[in-house]
């Protein structure tokens, strides 16, 4: 029993890792006022590019870098449409998702079902990994796990304790006022969308080269959408995103844990999506003023409008 609990929690950490990465990226993006519904598509692009580069070069970290680049590149589409052309961000994000899923399917077709022989070793943190229970759960994990937590903390520090962070948050709250302070709103929003895209792609890379070590079309399985919901759940705070993501990782894992109990596997597969709705419902019972949503989220900003 003890072993089951430890391995469940360990796997919850693994399952939560891509969610945390994608959520952190979306938090930064939304803090600048741009809603990016393309996470799912960008994640798929990240997954496929990381996989292809890794399997052909044998260099997983090169794969990760290329994935981040690809994620940023494809996110430019959303940035251009929603920032420069002031298009509807919902529709533009959906288009990005369609395109990302489609392109990843096309590029990845020859690689479907190929196993990845290169292993990314878990990092065992000296001393800390010897702590009973916690050592195995928290300190014997894939590098992505540490990276995700580290980046979430960096993102928090960046948003709260740096000048650029204040500028990005101001852009999401009141772009007009921010611009009169001499801040280039367009540039910051582009930057935020690109950072968000990079994070989503990184999450995808984790899925293909670390989590499942293979590529198959549609392997993101709605994680991108859950990340968008987690952004709300985390109240646009990367710090809160850490435990929110791992809580959801737990829900993903509980599926497998409960399967032997004779519960319908389809019902269990429903759980993450159902839990998303339930959690959003619980949040809504909270005072909306304290939700802390960026005031101008999703609103196109037009320069020089009276």
């Amino acid at each position: 029993m003890e072993d089951i609990i430890i391995s469940t929690l360990q796997r919850a950490m693994v399952a939560g890792t891509p969610l945390l990465l994608a959520t952190t990226g979306e938090v930064i993006c939304e803090r600048s006022g741009i809603l990016n519904l393309g996470v799912e598509g960008v994640m798929a692009m990240g997954a496929v590019t990381a996989f292809i580069v890794t399997i052909t070069t044998g260099q997983p970290w090169l794969g990760v870098l290329v994935a981040i680049g690809a994620g940023m590149a494809i996110s430019i589409i959303h940035a251009f449409a929603s920032i420069t052309l002031q298009a509807n961000q919902v529709v533009s994000g959906l288009a990005l998702t369609m395109l990302g899923l489609g392109l990843s399917g096309m590029i990845g077709k020859p690689y479907v079902g190929k196993p990845l022989s290169i292993k990314m070793d878990d990092w065992t943190i000296p001393y800390l990994s010897d702590i009973p229970y916690l050592g195995k759960i928290l300190f014997t994990q894939s590098p992505f796990f540490y990276l995700a937590i580290f980046l979430a903390l960096v993102a928090w520090f960046f948003l709260e304790r740096t000048r650029l962070g204040i500028q990005i948050r101001s852009t999401g709250e009141n772009p007009r006022a921010t611009e009169t302070q001499g801040v280039n709103v367009f540039r910051l929003r582009y930057l935020s969308v690109l950072i968000g895209g990079g994070f989503s792609a990184l999450a995808g890379a984790h899925l293909s080269i670390s989590y499942s070590k293979s590529w198959i079309e549609g392997m993101t399985a709605g994680r991108g959408w859950i990340a968008i919901a987690l952004t709300i759940f985390a109240l646009w705070n990367p710090g809160r995103a850490i435990w929110a993501a791992f809580l959801f990782g737990g829900i993903f894992v509980v599926q497998y844990l409960m399967q032997p109990l004779g519960i319908s596997p389809n019902f269990l597969a429903m759980l993450p999506y159902l839990a998303t709705l339930i959690i959003l419902f619980l949040i809504s019972l909270k005072d909306p003023r304290k939700l802390n949503a960026p005031a101008m989220l999703g609103e196109p900003y037009k320069r020089g409008e009276r």
Binding site: M98, L101, M106
Partner: peptide, 16 residues
């Protein structure tokens, strides 16, 4: 996935 590429691209150009 080809159809999705076509769809996604056309949608992007329509909103642009």
């Amino acid at each position: 996935a080809t159809v999705e590429i076509v769809n996604g691209t056309l949608l992007i150009f329509l909103i642009m």
